Every structure is written in C-alpha cells, then in structure tokens.
Amino acid sequence: MPSFSFWLAYLAFGCAAGIIAGLLGVGGGIVVVPALYFLFTAQGLPHEHIMQLALGTSLATIVFTSVASFRAHDKRGAVRWDIFKSITPGIIIGSLLGSWVAAQLSTKFLKGFFIIFLYYVSVQMLLNIKPKASRQVPGTGGMFATGGIVGLVSNLVGIGGGTMTVPFLTWCNIPIHVAVGTASAIGFPIAVAGVIGYLANGLRVDHLPSLSIGYIYLPALIGIVATSMYTAKYGAKLAHSLPVGTLKRVFALFLLAMATRMLWSMF
C-alpha cells in the first residue's frame, strides 16, 4: 500500500491531468505517464515493469477523464459525433495492437520512445506548428487508417491521442475548439481498448505489485481519477474562454523539463 505522500501525489497529478484533458483534448496521459514513472520508481515497484504499469494505469485514468471532458465539450456543441463514429473502428484495432506491442518491449525502450515523443510534442507546441487547413475529413478507408495509427501510437505512449487527432482534425478544416472537443471523445475508445490490452497482457506476468490488475496499478488509478474527473470540466471551460496558444506554450515548457528529467535518469 502506498504511503500518504504518494496518495497526495496521485491526487495532485489527477488535478493537472483533468485540466489538461479538458483544455487541450489530450487525455492527460502526457502528464500522468512521466509522473507515474517517477512515483513508481520512488515506491520501489519492479523496475522491469514500471513503464508498462505507467502506460496501462494512465490509459485506465483516461477512460474516466475523457468522459468528463467530452461531456463538458458536448454541452457547448463542440463534438463531431460523425467523425467519432467513423474513426473508432480503426482506433480499436490500433489500440489493441499497440498494447500488445508495448507488453513485448523493455522498459528502457518504452522510456526512450516516450522521451522522443515528449520532445516532439513540446517543440510542436512551442513553434505552434499547425498543418495547413486545406482539406476535408477523408472517407471511410482514410478514417480507418488514421484511427489505426492514432490508436497504435497512443497505446505505446499511454495517452488519449489528442496530440495527434487535434492537428489531424484542424488539417481537415475542423475549427480548433471542435477539434479539441472531438479529440476528447476519441480518447475514450483509445483508452478502453488499451485498458483491455494492458489487462490481458499483464495477467500472465509474474512479480507485479499486489495491488495491480494486469498492468494497471489500482492505488494510482483511484487517486488520479478522484480529482481528474472533477477538474476536466474546468479545463473544457478554459478551452472556450482563455487564449489556448499561451497556455499551450507554458505546457510545452513543462513537457520539455519532464522529458529532459527522464532523459537524464537514463544515464
């Protein structure tokens, strides 16, 4: 059982994950995964399984956070459910494949992959790189392929997929607030399929913590969800009222610091 200080840390990162999920449509996992990596390491959980536990637990929190987030966005008419329906089949296939691949890889490889991903996202945010909005949403085949790629990568890094779906949707000429709201909804099937995969692949693994089910560590899940579901709606409110560009740059600096800290720990 984690100590009181770790419970407080889970609650604190849940607050941050909820706000970020509602604000940017990214699911919150981009903060939760590195936070869980450091917290699990400090708790002395089995090192060879720490990244898988962080990824699986992160996706489990997104199941709950994404619901709170997309409901808040949907009240403002900012979710395109037609896009959600067309991309979900590919999302499910890609997510299940991603969780299986992650279970076969080492913690060191997954950590390195996640660090590269953090640097990519943070630089993209700092430079405000946006694809040119010059086309419409693709047809069934294109959406299935896109969903498969988003689901695969999202489950390799334990996120809700918003860092890919938001740029993709804006590239397809979808207004930014609608893209964020729709991305928050798309995070739900990504997380559900990922949780199923991380549960199934973790059940066969020995020496996992006693309070885990597969690759999902229950104390962290409970602590983060307890606050993230409450704060996600405020993040969605901020997304419709504050200059998101400025907040994204602040968030990008935080990601750079987190990625650098994880990179330093590898040496």
Results as ranks from 00 to 15, higher is better:
residue 83 I to N: 12
residue 177 H to L: 11
residue 252 A to V: 02
residue 33 V to E: 08
residue 99 S to Y: 01
residue 59 L to Y: 06
residue 200 A to C: 08
residue 224 I to V: 15
residue 117 F to N: 05
residue 179 A to V: 02
residue 251 F to W: 06
residue 108 K to S: 15
residue 82 D to T: 14
residue 209 P to K: 04
residue 128 N to I: 00
residue 218 L to D: 04
residue 139 G to I: 06
residue 184 S to V: 06
residue 124 Q to Y: 03
residue 189 P to I: 03
residue 167 P to M: 11
residue 135 R to V: 04
residue 242 L to K: 13
residue 25 G to Y: 08
residue 70 F to K: 04
residue 149 I to A: 09
residue 52 Q to E: 01
residue 183 A to R: 05
residue 97 L to D: 01
residue 57 T to M: 01
residue 42 A to H: 13
residue 19 I to T: 10
residue 71 R to T: 14
residue 168 F to H: 06
residue 86 S to V: 04
residue 30 I to M: 13
residue 74 D to M: 11
residue 39 L to C: 02
residue 54 A to G: 13
residue 54 A to T: 07
residue 53 L to G: 07
residue 139 G to S: 08
residue 192 V to P: 07
residue 44 G to N: 09
residue 237 K to L: 12
residue 226 A to N: 13
residue 112 G to E: 10
residue 129 I to G: 04
residue 118 L to K: 04
residue 203 L to I: 12
residue 241 S to K: 15
residue 34 P to Q: 07
residue 159 I to H: 06
residue 136 Q to N: 14
residue 110 L to T: 00
residue 263 L to N: 05
residue 265 S to F: 02
residue 234 Y to R: 12
residue 230 Y to R: 13
residue 11 L to K: 02
residue 131 P to R: 14
residue 108 K to T: 15
residue 181 G to F: 02
residue 63 V to T: 07
residue 129 I to R: 15
residue 200 A to I: 11
residue 229 M to F: 06
residue 126 L to F: 05
residue 64 F to L: 15
residue 23 L to T: 04
residue 47 H to K: 13
residue 257 A to Q: 11
residue 265 S to A: 15
residue 74 D to R: 13
residue 165 T to R: 00
residue 34 P to L: 07
residue 221 L to W: 01
residue 126 L to D: 12
residue 145 A to I: 12
residue 3 S to L: 11
residue 95 S to W: 00
residue 149 I to W: 01
residue 242 L to A: 10
residue 33 V to M: 04
residue 172 C to I: 05
residue 250 V to E: 07
residue 32 V to F: 01
residue 6 F to T: 14
residue 168 F to M: 15
residue 262 M to I: 10
residue 183 A to P: 09
residue 198 Y to V: 00
residue 200 A to W: 13
residue 193 A to L: 01
residue 72 A to L: 09
residue 39 L to D: 02
residue 14 G to M: 03
residue 37 Y to D: 01
residue 8 L to E: 01
residue 258 M to C: 08
residue 147 G to Q: 08
residue 103 A to Q: 00
residue 166 V to S: 07
residue 180 V to P: 09
residue 232 A to C: 11
residue 12 A to M: 12
residue 145 A to C: 11
residue 234 Y to N: 11
residue 215 Y to I: 00
residue 175 P to Q: 05
residue 33 V to N: 02
residue 205 V to L: 01
residue 23 L to I: 14
residue 207 H to E: 15
residue 103 A to T: 00
residue 213 I to T: 15
residue 264 W to T: 12
residue 30 I to F: 11
residue 49 H to G: 03
residue 144 F to D: 06
residue 207 H to Y: 08
